[in-house]
Every structure is written in C-alpha cells, then in structure tokens.
Amino acid sequence: METLERILAEHPFSRDLQKPYAELLVGCAANVRFEAGEFLFREGDEANQFYLIRQGIVSVEIFAGPSGQTTITTMGEGEVLGWSWLFPPYRWKFDARAVELTRAIALDGKCLRAKCEADHDLGYELLKRFALMVEQRLDATRLQLLNVYESHA
C-alpha cells in the first residue's frame, strides 16, 4: 500500500517540498474517496481543507437558479482543489462534486493556517504554490469568458 508520504512526494503540488515541510504536510493529510455524484463540499460550508486529486474528475459548480447547476471547471489527477481555506471568512464559494469515483488527499487547512502563521517560510512556500495555481486558473477562466472557439482576429 502506498504511504501518504509517497503519494505527496509524487503529486505535482507537493512534489519538491523540502523534507521538513513535506513531513509537516503528511501530518495534516488524510486519504479520502468520493463516489460519483458525491459532494466534496458545498457553497457556504466552512472551508477547512483542500484536496490533491489522485484519480477521478471533480466538477466545480455554481447553482444558478432555474437553469440548475452550471459547471465552471473540472479537475482531475494531479490538480489541487480549493483555496477558500486560506482566506477569511474561510467558506466555500462553489460546490464541488465528484463526477466519477474520485480519490484524493485531503489536507487540513485549519491546521496548516496556524502552522503558516507560526512559520512564514512555510507560509511563503505554500502561498507561492497557491498563487501560481490561482494565476493559471484565472488565465484559463479569462479565456473561457472570451469564447476562443468563435472569436476572430
């Protein structure tokens, strides 16, 4: 059986963390599994963790009234889901639902928040990784807004 340590060492998010930080992360990690259709979290709930997806597809959705659920993005293997745990008021702004059987590592954000406050080097390391992710997702969202498949010139 794979150890958490090994899984974290292989996930793109935590691949090259310094050893002490990697160990610290292992201390806050848990293996989780969601069946197809199961919610990882729902809009408005307290955001206390984030997920390193190992397998499966998770859709990030917003409930948009009569038109029902609208999927904003989907995430799969190697990606990271959730950053609301980093910023007050620490509540999820969207729903996240497993589209198919999904395996992930859940990391305790509440615990990490405190550790980042105590050790700013750790905080900087984690924020750098999250900032890059946010930037990439913002770029992708901008292109999504643009409708790149029909625009010209």
Partner: peptide
C-alpha cells in the same frame, strides 16, 4: 467552456 449538469466530461478552456 460551459456545460449542463448532464455533461460528464471536462469543463475548462482547451489550453
């Protein structure tokens, strides 16, 4: 880019 709930594939720009 956009999908109804029934879509079971990927959502996100091609890049």
């Amino acid at each position: 880019d956009r999908a109804p709930a029934a879509w079971r594939g990927s959502v996100g720009v091609v890049t």
